[in-house]
Amino acid sequence: MNLDGRTVVLTGATSGIGQAAARLLAPHTGTLVIQGPQPASEVAALIKELGAHTEVHYVAADFTSFEQVRQAGAEIRAMVPAIDVLINNAGVPGTAHRQVTADGNERTLQVNYLALTLLTEILLPAIPSGGRIVNVSSTTHRMVSLALDDLNLAHGYDPVRAYAQSKLAILTYSLQFAQQVSDRGIGVVAISPGVISTSLLHQMFGAGGARVEHGGRRIAEAVTADVPTGTYIDDGEIVAPSEEARDLSAATALAARTASLIPS
Rank of each mutant, 00 (worst) to 15 (best):
V43A: 03
A40T: 10
Q71W: 07
G30D: 11
A40V: 14
E55V: 13
A44Q: 15
A82R: 14
P81M: 06
A26H: 07
Y58R: 00
V85C: 02
V59Q: 02
G36F: 11
P37Q: 14
T29Y: 09
V80Q: 05
V33H: 06
T54L: 02
V92H: 00
A52G: 08
E55T: 14
I47C: 13
S65T: 06
T64L: 04
A61T: 05
K48S: 15
A90D: 06
R23N: 08
P27M: 08
E55N: 10
A78L: 03
V69G: 05
V85S: 04
V85K: 02
M79F: 14
T31Y: 10
T95H: 04
V92R: 00
E55Y: 00
N89I: 06
T95G: 00
P37G: 13
V92I: 15
V69P: 09
R23M: 12
G94D: 02
A61W: 04
A52Q: 14
V43E: 07
D62R: 04
A78Y: 04
R70Q: 14
L25I: 15
G91K: 00
A90Y: 02
E67G: 13
T95A: 11
V92F: 00
Q35T: 15
Q35K: 01
S65H: 11
A40F: 05
L25S: 07
D62F: 02
A40I: 12
T31A: 12
E42A: 14
V33Y: 07
N89G: 01
F66S: 02
Q71Y: 11
N88G: 00
G94W: 01
I83Y: 04
R77G: 10
S65I: 09
A82G: 08
V69Q: 09
L24Y: 06
I34A: 09
F63E: 06
E49H: 04
V33F: 06
I87R: 01
G94E: 02
G36R: 07
A52N: 10
T29D: 10
F66V: 07
T54N: 01
L50I: 10
V33N: 05
D84H: 14
A61C: 03
I83D: 05
A61K: 00
A45K: 11
T54A: 04
V80R: 01
Y58N: 01
D62Q: 04
E55P: 00
L24D: 13
S41G: 10
A78W: 02
V69H: 10
A78K: 12
A61V: 06
K48W: 09
Q71F: 07
L50P: 02
V43D: 06
G30P: 07
I34N: 09
D84W: 08
E49L: 03
D84F: 10
I47L: 10
V85G: 02
A61Q: 03
L24I: 15
G30E: 12
A72W: 03
M79S: 11
L24C: 02
